[in-house]
Design a protein around this nucleic acid. Structure first.
Length: 268
DNA sequence: TATAATGTTAGACT
DNA sequence: AAGTCTAACATTAT
């Protein structure tokens, strides 16, 4: 569900609301999450996004690493729950998998499909960073990374080892904006074409962050509000509809097991 | 009932 | 050997 703009939205909202708070208790509700230590007593230090990962750093050297995968959400409910935190008075949000009680409110990890992952690790030893498209990736860097890649350029944009944060919605939208056919091989793009991609990446992702993400069905921000970026989508999920740029017809194909939407008439 | 869904990855295949 | 492709994960909605 969440790509870079959605994860960035959650990080900014979380950083703004739980700064300096202490964890009173943590509860794991889904055994699929594996072993997670009790987090009571730790104080929130800050949040950072790493691609689509959310790193929550605690005072004392622990980091809680979340990945929301397809249907994971975070929801923050202001107001302190009373010990022993059993929430008899307030029903749990459906599909709650992890609950972290802070001094000023409660953070829920909600995840119907149960693909989300949680790990708690020492803050030292963080993985090496991968280029982040929000900071801007130069056309020459794209060209160099794609030099030997024969996969479709759309799949390349979604390769988290190369570029961190772009997912299925924004990959289609970026290539439409850049006027590039998603079936092209990554290595076939010229420097000039990567320049168009670079521009599109910045514009599309920054606007999506400003809109607090894209709500197609179930994405909500930290406070349960819908995003607004769905109004800006030009191709995603629009197969059979009219291209807003050239009047052609938007098509859907499959690439790497995922849907790709594009306009064959104006994406070359 | 079959298909698709905002993600990742292990293992099969080139 | 290294890059690419596919199936699998668990669940809901159309």
């Amino acid at each position: 569900m969440p790509e870079l703009p959605e994860v960035e939205t959650l990080c900014r909202q979380l950083d703004g609301i739980v700064k300096g708070e202490k964890i009173l208790r943590s509860e794991v509700l889904d055994s699929l999450l594996g072993e997670i230590p009790q987090l009571a007593g730790h104080e929130f230090l800050g949040v950072a996004r790493r691609g689509k990962f959310i790193d929550i750093t605690l005072v004392g050297g622990l980091t809680v690493i979340l990945h929301l995968r397809m249907t994971g959400r975070l929801f923050y409910q202001p107001g302190q729950a009373a010990p022993p935190f059993t929430n008899i008075d307030r029903p749990l949000p459906a599909y709650s998998r992890l609950i972290i009680h802070f001094t000023g409110g409660t953070l829920f990890l909600i995840d119907p499909r149960r693909f989300a992952t949680v790990a708690v690790r020492p803050s030292s030893g963080a993985p090496a960073p991968v280029p982040d498209p929000l900071k801007g990736i130069a056309a020459r860097v794209f060209l160099e990374m794609a030099r030997t890649r024969t996969i479709p350029v759309k799949s390349f944009l979604m390769d988290q080892r190369a570029i961190a944060g772009i997912g299925n919605i924004y990959a289609s939208e970026i290539l439409f904006s850049a006027g590039i056919d998603p079936r092209r091989t990554a290595k076939s793009l010229t420097l000039g074409e990567w320049g168009k991609v670079k521009k599109a990446v910045g514009e599309i992702l920054r606007r999506a962050v400003a809109c607090r993400g894209t709500t197609i069905s179930d994405w909500r921000d930290l406070f349960g509000k819908m995003g607004k970026n769905q109004d800006n989508l030009k191709v995603y999920s629009r197969h059979g509809e009219v291209c807003r740029r050239c009047g052609g017809t938007i098509e859907r194909i499959k690439q790497g097991g995922r849907g790709t939407w594009f306009c064959p008439a104006c994406q070359k």
